[in-house]
Design a protein around this nucleic acid. Structure first.
Length: 272
DNA sequence: AACCTGCTCAACCGCAACGTC
DNA sequence: AGACGTTGCGGTTGAGCAGGT
C-alpha cells in the first residue's frame, strides 16, 4: 500500500522497523545501553543488527546513529579510538585488514584460553570422587565461551571468515561444533549459552528500565557519568593496541570474561 | 531578525544473501 | 542452473532544529 505517498515497499518496511514498530523504545540511551554498545562494538565492530539484537527495543539504525554522533566522537576525543579504526569501517584499506587480523588473532587466543580452562575444569571433575564433586563449588560458566557461542561470536566469525572457503578459516570452529564440544565437557555450559544475552546486556534477563522521556536529565546524567567510564573501552577493545583486550593477564579482556561476577563487577565499578 | 554552524536522526541508497519459480 | 523478487544490512544523506553571532 502506498498510502498516497511515494513509498516503495522497502521504504515502508524500513519505516516500520525503525520507527513505527510498537516495541521500539524511545528516549535517550541509558548508561547500561551505552556500555553494552561500546562493548559489543569492540567485539563485533559495525555489526549494528547484532548489537541491536542485544538491546531490546533499540533498532540497528538508532544504535548506528548514536554511535556515529555520540560515542565515536567521544572516544575519538578521548583518544580511545584511533582515526584509522574509524576509517576502517570501510571494507577496503590495508589498515583495516591488518586491524582485522589482529582482532581475529586476539579472539582466537582468548577462545583457546577459555577452552583450555574449561577442559582443565572438566578433567578435574572427572578425576574427583562423587562426594568431592558434590562438595566442590560449581565452576563458573565461562563467560567468553558463552559470548563466543552466542550470535555475537557468530557474527564475528562470519565477519572475519576467509572468503571462498578453500582453506578452513581459523574460525571454522563452528557454533554447532563448539556447542557440541561444550555440551560434552559440561552439559551445564551448553545450557548457559541461552543466557548469554542477558549477560552481555547486563540486563539480568528482564526488560531494561524504561526511560523517562519527559526530560533530558537522564541523558545529561549519562553523559557525565560515562565520561570516565569510556576508559572501559581500553579494556574491551578500542584501545591503542587495537584491542588491548586480551593482553592483560589480570586486567584485560580475558579476566573480564573469567566469570560473570568479575565481568559485572568490573563494568559496574567502571561506570560508577 | 537574519544568518551561520553544528547536531540529530529518519530516510535513502546500494549491495549481498536468501527464497521461489 | 539461473532469473527474479524479497529481505536484511551498513554507509551515507539531507531536512529540521537549536544555539551562537
Amino acid at each position: 500500500m502506498k498510502a498516497g505517498l511515494l513509498r516503495c515497499g522497502k521504504s515502508c518496511r524500513l519505516r516500520w522497523t525503525n520507527y513505527l514498530r510498537p516495541d521500539i523504545k524511545r528516549g535517550p540511551f541509558t548508561p547500561d545501553e551505552q556500555k553494552s554498545i561500546i562493548q559489543l562494538h569492540a567485539i563485533v565492530g559495525n555489526k549494528w543488527s547484532t548489537i541491536a539484537a542485544q538491546l531490546p527495543g533499540r533498532t540497528d539504525n538508532e544504535i548506528k546513529n548514536f554511535w556515529n554522533t555520540h560515542l565515536k566522537k567521544r572516544l575519538l576525543r578521548m583518544g580511545l579510538l584511533h582515526p584509522d579504526d574509524v576509517s576502517s569501517a570501510s571494507p577496503s584499506g590495508a589498515s583495516a585488514s591488518a586491524s582485522a587480523s589482529r582482532h581475529m588473532a586476539q579472539w582466537e587466543s582468548a577462545r583457546l584460553e577459555a577452552e583450555a580452562r574449561l577442559s582443565r575444569e572438566s578433567s578435574l571433575f572427572a578425576h574427583s570422587s562423587a562426594a568431592q564433586v558434590a562438595a566442590a563449588p560449581k565452576p563458573e560458566p565461562d563467560f567468553f565461551l558463552r559470548i563466543w557461542n552466542s550470535e555475537v561470536g557468530d557474527a564475528f566469525r562470519t565477519k572475519n571468515a576467509a572468503p571462498g572457503g578453500e582453506s578452513p578459516s581459523p574460525y571454522s570452529f563452528s557454533t554447532r561444533q563448539s556447542a557440541a564440544t561444550k555440551a560434552e565437557a559440561s552439559p551445564a555450559a551448553a545450557r548457559e549459552e541461552t543466557e548469554t544475552k542477558s549477560c552481555v546486556t547486563g540486563g539480568g534477563g528482564g526488560p531494561p528500565a524504561v526511560m523517562d522521556d519527559s526530560s533530558g536529565s537522564n541523558e545529561v546524567a549519562a553523559e557525565d557519568a560515562s565520561e570516565e567510564s569510556y576508559q572501559l573501552y581500553l579494556d574491551f577493545g578500542g584501545g591503542d593496541d587495537e584491542l588491548g583486550l586480551f593482553s592483560g593477564q589480570l586486567g584485560g579482556f580475558s579476566s573480564l570474561f573469567c566469570s560473570d561476577l568479575n565481568a559485572e563487577a568490573s563494568l559496574d565499578s567502571a561506570f560508577k
